[in-house]
Design a binder for these strands. Structure first.
Lengths: 233, 233
DNA sequence: TTTAATCATTTTGAATGCATAATGCAATCT
DNA sequence: AGATTGCATTATGCATTCAAAATGATTAAA
């Protein structure tokens, strides 16, 4: 977007050194995804400052941003925690994310080229391979990739951004939920249908499929979160 | 949401003095809505600091948050601007907001009590009154109120929050677009249908109505933004 | 033994100060 | 005259410092 504003289409070589707080937002986000910062744990400013070798100012700015994204919970004078999702949060988040995925499906059907669809199909086969091999982490990774790709094909950067922000809140739980292999076969079948709808440019059907596909995951995610809370993590 | 997390349902009297940066986020947001900070204008830190009588630290934290909401645009080492919407931004935002409104309609039909619906109906009549009187600011205010109320009836605080954040980005332009009285009559008719769908708890129809109702506004908003840009504002 | 109160310690909130990048203007050169 | 370079000014990024709130432990009291 910045580059677009500059208007040098094609030749933008915007040498943009990110500021500390931007980089921190990135890094901390990743730490949460990788569970190096577990949900529910406290995040003392000092610790992270020493870890990154920086002062409190940029760190605090980063925490404010992460809090506005919902990844961090701030309580005035009491510090920061990695947001602990409740089952209620999941109930609230899934319909929203589902609606956005549905929208992405409709838009993708309008915008995607045949080459785009071929690419998604390739990813689909790759995922099927991981599925048969029982390689769960890779299956999950490619799965995310497919949904992300459809999001991109929608050609709506703002949608992508909003989606990414919301999806990030449950990404960790989603990953853990996937560990329960129970739904794998069913999910694979759903993915077949999703691919078909995209290939035939049936936007309405694709939207509905993406929506229900996601809602089917909800209970598994909720179960994981309940277990985590019960364990006091 | 904070209060919910504390879990003192009913007796939350959380005497929570907001921190400076939180208050600043609020105040600056309002300034943007009221056009006291016009879109596209520069926001020098010093000026606002003196205006509010505070130091740069909390102000900078507030700007970071507003930037992550999309209301402010930050460029490293170059300062802050009130985000200038482009017609492309509008094209991207409207489908998203439409999808969220549609979702709110479906959920509202499930959750709303008869009393809730009666309340919306009352607001509807109030709006109709302003419409016949040609009182545009009041019409706009009640209009927003109705959509906001349906959002609330969905019973999904997270949805409300995401919606509010996105809607805030175009709120100013939406208000200006409403000045063009052209679509008033049509919009009123659409609102009649919306009310009917809600009253009969027809979630699917309501969702579709809200979506198209919003998309109908898009062109008016885009026109306003193009004019603003042309004038160099 | 349990509860309450006090105080030292820790941690956060906000202000200040310093280093660096960006901006605007004047002087210089073509 | 127009363009370019160099410098002074200004504004931003980050570190440091000071103040206030929260935490935890210890002691005193019921």
């Amino acid at each position: 977007m910045d580059e677009a504003q500059l208007g040098h289409a094609g030749y933008t070589e915007t040498l943009r050194r990110p500021t500390l707080h931007e980089e921190l937002v990135e890094r901390i986000r990743e730490m949460i995804f990788d569970d190096r910062l577990a949900t529910g744990t406290r995040v003392p400013e000092r610790d992270l400052c020493e870890r990154f070798g920086i002062s409190r100012t940029p760190l605090r700015e980063a925490l404010k941003v992460l809090a506005s994204e919902g990844l961090i919970t701030l309580q005035p004078n009491r510090g920061a925690w990695v947001t602990q999702l409740t089952p209620e949060d999941v109930d609230e988040l899934f319909p929203i994310i589902g609606a956005l995925e549905a929208l992405s499906g409709s838009l993708a059907c309008e915008n995607a080229t045949d080459a785009d669809i071929a690419e998604v199909r390739a990813l689909h086969y790759e995922m099927a391979l991981h599925h048969t091999r029982g390689d769960q982490p890779e299956y999950f990774r490619v799965n995310q990739l497919i949904h992300g790709r459809i999001m991109e094909l929608a050609g709506n950067p703002t949608l992508l951004q909003v989606y990414a922000s919301l999806a990030s809140r449950i990404r960790r739980a989603r990953y853990l939920a996937n560990a329960s292999i129970a739904r794998w076969d069913e999910a694979m079948r759903e993915h077949e249908e999703i691919l078909d709808a995209l290939a035939t440019r049936d936007g309405e059907t694709l939207a509905a499929l993406l929506k229900s596909h996601l809602l089917n995951k909800r209970d598994a995610v909720k179960r994981v979160i309940r277990e985590k809370i019960a364990r006091g993590t």
